[in-house]
Simulated scan of single mutants.
Amino acid sequence: MTSNNHAQNRALQQDARKWAAFTGTKYTAALRQMSSPLAQGLLGDRVSARRLIATLADHELIGARGGDPALGENGFRSEASWRFNGETDFIDLALITDMLRMFTPSSATATPEVSSYSLKHTAEWFLTPRCSHVSNGQLIWAAAALGLRIAEPDGAGPNLLIGVSEREHDYVRRMVGPGHTRPRAGHYRPAGYADLQTALAQAATGKRITSRWVRPAPVDEVALFHSWLILQADRNDPVGDLANDYSAGVHGSEHRIAHTPDGLLAIFREVPHSPEAYDAVVSAIAEWTRTLPSPQPIRTERIGGDSHHHEGWDAGAGTVERYEYHCPCGDGGIIEEHDNVPGFRKHDVWIDCDRCRAEWRFVPGKSVRQWGLEPIPAGVTT
């Protein structure tokens, strides 16, 4: 036996003795829980029973600190006694802790926003069938032991506010909660969401998790167009209305973030919208391009096309290429053609949509293969 395995076994035994004494169960039953694959830490270090017990005693908000218990089964200042079944109570707390680990913790300066009561239901839905009942007290206990920020809301009650990302929690709640509309975009999906689902499935079969999940470092994405559009939400005009609707859609994960104007056009091809809303999109993109010294041309997604062999016209064989792209409004297309046949070489691209021909033009100076679009300035005819 290696010294590392010996240390791990000793830690499990010490935890089992403390948990057995704390819960009034047998040592062997406690050790069985400590040794369960589900309690080995699926998104981090193994949950320590001694840490959990110490949290109830010493935590600055929920700890008894020598007085009466501040946390009970039903929540903060609950008089309901803790219910320990001697079979899964510790495993349940370990699973709840891992569920909380997948969320991004709130910063030290941010006020916690997510209710423990709401989180406890989300934990039940996410962890079922391995842990189908989570009490309000268990959720608060696990959050405190994990070191998440915890605060009292205005008004007395058993629920506390937990310092995890409100938008990430909303995403998970809608993904797993019965009767909820599932998000259409994943920009608020917690970093550990898929990893925890995979680890839960593996641990449930008895497999131990050998690789440790590492929370990815925060990445400050440069999304200048998105940031600019959000700032237009206070305007009292069609672009302001568009920005309001766009902001609400991002917040509710109804659609993805538009990092560029191309992305905004793609969103509007995927969601229902009025003609007036599309007009506001064109106006917003035209206004955005005027703010930049060298705006990036619009390039829409390719939706079809191919290249085929051609026998030629007595001067040799060649190829003919034809590709189709979305037009900005989505009702027509942009056609790009290349006749690579000796004696009949031709390259062309055109907008096959009456509406878009009136609102967009090709950026001059670019080759047919590198085409790009820009809004036609007001008062300019083509």
Rank of each mutant, 00 (worst) to 15 (best):
E359T: 12
E311I: 14
Y323T: 06
I162A: 09
G330L: 07
E113H: 05
D220A: 15
F84Q: 04
A185C: 10
A20G: 03
E124H: 03
A203P: 06
G332Y: 04
A204G: 05
V214L: 15
A54P: 00
H273C: 03
A217C: 05
S165M: 10
R10T: 13
E124N: 08
R322Y: 04
R361I: 03
R149N: 07
T109G: 04
A20E: 00
G179P: 02
N9C: 08
H133I: 12
T97N: 05
I53T: 04
E166S: 15
G86K: 00
L38T: 02
T381A: 14
L264S: 02
I91T: 08
A80G: 04
R149I: 03
A156C: 07
R77E: 11
G379K: 14
W288T: 10
W350T: 12
V114H: 04
L93W: 00
C327P: 03
G316Y: 09
L229D: 03
D314N: 13
R46S: 09
T260V: 04
A315Q: 15
H309D: 13
E79F: 12
S294L: 12
E79V: 14
G67I: 06
Q370D: 13
S307H: 11
V214R: 15
R355D: 15
M99H: 07
L161Y: 09
A145C: 10
S35I: 02
H326E: 09
W313G: 11
W125T: 05
S48M: 09
C356S: 03
S78A: 09
E221L: 13
P69T: 00
L139Y: 13
A94D: 01
A64I: 07
T128Y: 11
A280R: 09
T181H: 09
G137P: 08
V250W: 00
P328C: 01
Y323D: 04
